[in-house]
């Protein structure tokens, strides 16, 4: 068995990198530094928890903001998925998360009554490379930001001559391989000792979303902006797509939008685990269920 690996902490979770090749310690250390620096840069721009981040800035003040080069795909995706979910997938959920107590300090204390959000289009005019913010509201790019960072780091590996790898960011992953199929257990959200099935991916990403761990009071980290509640009829969702950003964002969206609506705009396979342990999945989701 060849292969090498390393990990580091970023975006509040463990990032594990596995390689088919047997790299030297020195080379591993070099790659690790390149990747962890990139992750740090990314967080300093896109985290709503960093006071001087771009996301914090556009959350606080109206006006026109210049966007960095690497933001185009992410902003395009947010505005596009926003349309295909009838406005329900929105970065303005940051306002709700914050009001509900999922804030910088992790206070989990609800700050007053949750209110309905205005439409994304009416709050911000986006045309890369600028965004014109008309009303300052708290943004959060957490629903697809981690997936996008997975894609970026994958690209960075390829630019450094590494074509076979697996990036696992706390259960959301992207795998590239000429030969190996990756067997990914789908965690039972009610019993972490168990899996409810095994998905097999190759040169794809699989991302999962679940309310089970990040829970406080009546809330978890996913909100339906219409009901102002965290959905409870779905326990977990998994999405397989070519890009981790797409898989990540859609996994969240399946909690409040119909797969058929999202399918109109994106190419992906999905599996939804309902709270009664029934499963709904697309025809080609590559899974064996237990």
């Amino acid at each position: 068995m060849g292969g090498s690996s390393f990990d580091f902490l970023a975006t509040g979770t463990k990032w594990q990198f596995d390689f088919a090749e047997d790299f030297s310690v020195a080379k591993l250390e070099m790659i690790r530094t390149i990747l962890s620096n990139r992750a740090e840069d990314f967080e300093s721009i896109y985290s709503r928890f960093r006071e001087d981040s771009l996301i914090s800035k556009i959350s606080q003040k109206s006006g026109e903001f210049a966007l960095p080069e690497d933001s185009e795909k992410l902003f395009d995706f947010y505005f596009r998925l926003n349309k295909f979910t009838n406005g329900k997938f929105t970065p303005l959920v940051g306002e709700l998360l914050n009001m509900a107590g999922y804030d910088k300090e992790y206070s989990f204390i609800t700050k007053g009554v949750l209110e309905h959000m205005p439409d994304l289009e009416s709050v911000a005019e986006y045309k890369f490379p600028t965004i014109n913010v008309k009303e300052p509201l708290k943004w959060d790019l957490g629903a697809a930001g981690k997936g996008y960072l997975i894609d970026l780091l994958g690209k960075l590996l390829e630019e450094n001559g590494i074509s076979e790898y697996c990036i696992d960011a706390g259960g959301d992953m992207l795998q590239k391989s000429k030969t190996k199929v990756l067997r990914v257990g789908l965690e039972n959200p009610k019993n972490f000792e168990q899996v409810i099935g095994v998905a097999e991916i190759k040169n794809q990403s699989i991302c999962g979303s679940s309310g089970s761990r990040r829970q406080w009071g009546n809330f978890h980290h996913i909100f339906d902006i219409n009901s102002l509640q965290s959905p409870t009829d779905i326990l977990s969702t998994w999405v397989v797509a070519e890009s981790a950003m797409v898989a990540d964002g859609i996994a969240t969206s399946l909690f409040f939008s119909k797969p058929v609506d999202i399918k109109r705009g994106f190419d992906f396979e999905y599996l939804i685990l309902n709270s009664d342990f029934t499963v709904e999945r697309s025809k080609y989701f590559p899974v064996e269920l237990f």
Binding site: G171, V184, F192, S209, R213
Partner: peptide, 19 residues
């Protein structure tokens, strides 16, 4: 569901490794 140790897996995807 099935116990993790009964299944041959490379990875697990879920929320157990969250922030």
């Amino acid at each position: 569901g099935k116990n993790i140790n009964e299944v041959k897996l490379d990875k697990v995807s879920g929320s157990s490794l969250t922030s």
